[in-house]
């Protein structure tokens, strides 16, 4: 019995030792997606998954698990609380994930994560229906100044990127619009197409193919986008606002340097793969890579902006 126990202990110890020495990954990596299958974040994750497997190498297997609810907060909380061993990573949406730390009780903070890579940067666009008489950004601002609040502006949700865009626009131009939150982007776009609101804020990926019914006045990015090549940036219109929806990947805080490096390398190689870029273009995902420390700084900048908005004009 005693010998048996010793043998068992020894073999268990050997197993632990070999586990520590073994090359990551030696089992499935779970990728938690905070939205249902078929949504924008899910499509991004599923497009990226085969490339990530390929570049992690060693026969890595990434398993996607959809944990929808509370606009991604349930999944992101699970990532924050997971073992930091590299076998749990998750999708990460900005500014939403950080905004939730302000407007709700969240079981995580900006320090709960290892920031791997932000992959999608989907800038906001200011739009009007094609049937509208407002055809330029200058005209929109003019009309808003003439009769504050007369222009209704459709957005998808409070505390999201388009809401922040709305507040930044009002601040930068000292105008007043009437906020109409539809809850999600599809009904917002429908209401704009049908002329039920005078203007709206969408993301550039959401207007592809809708040129016949939606007019894009300006885009809130540094440079003009390949998805809307002829649209002026807000900056070129004299409005200093850059804003959009960001989607990336994080792991729990405390990842070992070795695993972190391996994952970041895999994300970089994925991003540089022309096939991946083509796949992202096909699924209307405007890409822009921010890796590791850059991603963390991007996150902090988003949090700072969200805090400023929350202090001056809380949305609930």
């Amino acid at each position: 019995m005693n010998i048996f126990r010793t043998a068992m202990f020894a073999s268990a110890a050997a197993l632990v030792a070999s586990a520590a020495l073994a090359e990551y990954p030696e089992r499935d990596i779970e990728l938690l997606v905070g939205f249902s299958a078929g949504g924008g974040t899910d499509v991004m994750a599923r497009t990226l998954e085969p490339f990530l497997e390929k570049y992690i190498g060693d026969g890595a297997n990434v398993v996607i698990k959809n944990i929808p609810g509370a606009s991604g907060q349930i999944a992101v909380t699970q990532v924050a609380e997971a073992e930091p061993d590299g076998y749990t990573i998750g999708t990460y949406n900005l500014p939403g994930v950080m905004a939730r730390t302000l407007d709700r009780e969240a079981d995580y903070t900006a320090d709960s994560f290892t920031y791997l890579a932000n992959v999608v940067n989907d800038p906001n666009v200011i739009v009007t229906p094609q049937s509208s008489s407002i055809t330029s950004m200058a005209q929109l601002i003019e009309e808003a100044e003439a009769d504050p609040g007369a222009i209704t502006m459709g957005i998808s949700g409070l505390g999201g990127d388009d809401h922040f865009m709305f507040i930044a626009l009002e601040d930068a131009t000292a105008t007043d619009f009437t906020l109409v939150p539809f809850g999600s982007s599809a009904p917002t776009r429908t209401a704009i197409m049908g002329g039920h609101v005078a203007a709206g804020i969408l993301n550039v990926s959401e207007i592809a193919g809708f040129e016949e019914s939606i007019r894009v006045l300006a885009i809130a990015s540094e440079e003009s986008s390949e998805y809307a090549p002829d649209v002026p940036t807000l900056k070129s219109e004299g409005i200093d606002v850059v804003n959009g929806s960001l989607r990336g990947f994080v792991a729990p805080e405390g990842l070992s340097e070795e695993v972190e490096q391996k994952l970041m390398d895999a994300f970089r190689q994925t991003f540089d793969d022309p096939e991946f870029q083509q796949a992202m273009r096909d699924t209307s995902n405007p890409t822009r890579l921010s890796l590791g420390e850059d991603f963390r700084m991007l996150n902090n900048a988003q949090l700072e902006f969200a805090k400023r908005v929350w202090e001056t004009s809380p949305w609930k």
């Binding site: 299958a37 078929g38 899910d42 599923r46 776009r189 429908t190 592809a208 809708f210 096909d282």
Partner: peptide, 27 residues
């Protein structure tokens, strides 16, 4: 129009998107 009439239609829109088919007037 890219407007899902029901929840199921919304899921199917996602399914189209995965295959690189952008729902909307151009489809």
């Amino acid at each position: 129009l890219g407007i899902p009439g029901t929840a199921v239609a919304a899921i199917m829109l996602g399914g189209l998107l995965v295959h690189g088919l952008q729902p909307g007037p151009m489809l």
